[in-house]
C-alpha cells in the first residue's frame, strides 16, 4: 500500500468543499428512524396488552411464555434475514424444521442419547440448507423454485420417516437440559439471545456478512470484485438450514416430541418478520435488530389475542394488516429520506 502507491497526491488549486450536511449514513449503532418507529409499534402493542390484561400480560410467566414461543420462529428468522439480504428467499424453512425435528426423534436416533440427537438436528438442517444452496448457486435454479421443491420434499420425507406419528422424546436428559433454566432464565430464551448476538456479529462484523450484503446489493459488482458469489450463496442457504436445525431443537423441547407437522407456516411468519424489520426483499439492505422486533411484534399480538380469547381468524387478519402497515410506514420513511 505504501511503496508503490500511485500518484503522490497532487496539490490541487480548487478549494476543498466542506462535506454537505445531511449525508446519509450507513448501518451501524446510530439511532435509526425506521427501527425507532418499529420499536414504538412494539411498545404500543405492549401497552395495549397491559391495558387489556393488567394482571397477566407483564407477569414474569407470560413474558417467559411469549419468548419461549418466539424462540423457534426467531431463530428461523435469523437465517431468513441472511438469505433475503443476499437477494434470495427460502420457502423451505418450515419443512426443514419438521424434517430435523422428526429425524432427531426417531427411536434409532434417540437410542444414541441426547448429544447425538442435537448433532442430528443440526446436521439435517445444515444438509438440507446446503442442498438448497447448491441447487441455487451451481444448479442455477431460481431460489423460489429450489426452496419450493425443498418445502415439499423435506416435509414429505419427514412424514415418511415418522409415519405421520408424533414421536415422543424418551431421553429425559434432553428435556431436562432444553426445558431447564440458567440463571433463572429458560434455556430456550438463552439460545434465542445467543443466536441473535452471533448472527448480528457475523452479519455486521465479519467478511462473511459484508459479502452477504455485497452479493445481495449487486451480485455482478461483487463477482467483478473477485468475490466467489456462487460459493457464498450456497453458504448463506446452509446458514439458513442450520438455523432451522437449531429451531428444531427448540420445538422438540417445547412440545417434548417431534412431528412432521412441526414448523408449519414458519416460512410465512419468518418472511413477514424479516420484511417488517425493514430488510429489503430485493436484497442488499437489512438488519437483524429489525427482524427481532418483527418477531416480537407478532409474538405480542398473539399473546394479546390469546389472553382476550379472540379467535385465530381475527388474529390472522390482524397479522396481515400489521405487515402492510409496517411496510407502508417504512416506505414512507424511505421516500422522505431520499428527497
Amino acid at each position: 500500500m505504501t511503496a508503490s502507491s500511485p500518484g503522490t497526491a497532487e496539490t490541487v488549486d480548487q478549494p476543498v468543499q466542506p462535506p454537505p450536511a445531511n449525508v446519509p449514513k450507513v448501518r451501524g449503532f446510530r439511532p435509526d428512524l425506521r427501527l425507532s418507529i418499529l420499536f414504538g409499534v412494539l411498545v404500543v402493542l405492549c401497552v395495549i396488552g397491559y391495558v387489556t390484561g393488567p394482571d397477566t400480560f407483564l407477569s414474569e410467566s407470560n413474558i417467559s411464555t411469549m419468548l419461549r414461543l418466539a424462540a423457534a420462529i426467531g431463530v428461523v428468522s435469523v437465517g431468513m434475514t441472511f438469505v433475503i439480504i443476499s437477494g434470495g428467499i427460502d420457502l423451505s424453512v418450515g419443512s426443514m424444521v419438521a424434517l430435523a425435528s422428526v429425524w432427531m426423534t426417531t427411536l434409532a436416533t434417540q437410542s444414541y442419547g441426547p448429544f447425538v440427537m442435537v448433532v442430528c438436528a443440526l446436521a439435517v438442517g445444515l444438509g438440507a440448507g446446503l442442498i438448497n444452496g447448491l441447487l441455487i448457486a451451481y444448479g442455477k435454479l431460481v431460489p423460489f423454485i429450489a426452496t419450493l421443491a425443498m418445502y415439499a420434499s423435506a416435509r414429505g420425507l419427514a412424514e415418511r420417516l415418522s409415519g405421520r406419528r408424533t414421536q415422543v422424546v424418551n431421553q429425559q436428559g434432553y428435556l431436562d437440559f432444553f426445558r431447564g433454566a440458567f440463571l433463572g432464565i429458560p434455556v430456550l430464551i438463552w439460545m434465542l439471545a445467543v443466536v441473535y448476538v452471533v448472527g448480528w456479529v457475523v452479519l455486521n462484523r465479519t467478511t462473511f456478512g459484508r459479502r452477504t450484503f455485497a452479493v445481495g446489493g449487486n451480485a455482478e459488482a461483487a463477482r467483478l470484485a473477485g468475490i466467489n458469489v456462487k460459493r457464498h450463496t450456497a453458504m448463506v442457504y446452509a446458514v439458513a438450514g442450520l438455523c432451522c436445525g437449531i429451531a428444531a431443537l427448540m420445538v422438540v423441547a417445547r412440545t417434548t416430541s417431534g412431528a412432521s407437522t412441526n414448523g408449519l407456516y414458519y416460512e410465512l411468519d419468518a418472511i413477514a418478520a424479516v420484511v417488517i424489520g425493514g430488510t429489503l426483499l430485493t436484497g442488499g439492505r437489512g438488519t437483524l435488530i429489525g427482524t427481532l422486533i418483527g418477531v416480537l411484534i407478532f409474538t405480542v399480538v398473539n399473546s394479546i389475542f390469546t389472553q382476550n380469547n379472540l379467535e385465530t381468524d381475527v388474529q390472522n387478519i390482524a397479522k396481515g394488516v400489521i405487515i402492510v402497515a409496517a411496510v407502508l410506514l417504512q416506505y414512507g420513511t424511505n421516500r422522505t429520506r431520499k428527497t
Binding site: 450484503f213 455485497a214 459488482a221 467483478l224 439492505r285
Partner: peptide, 13 residues
C-alpha cells in the same frame, strides 16, 4: 452502476 458499485452501501464498503 450495474456492474461496479454497491449503490446503497458506503464508499468505504
Amino acid at each position: 452502476k450495474s456492474q461496479g458499485l454497491l449503490l446503497d452501501q458506503s464508499v468505504a464498503d
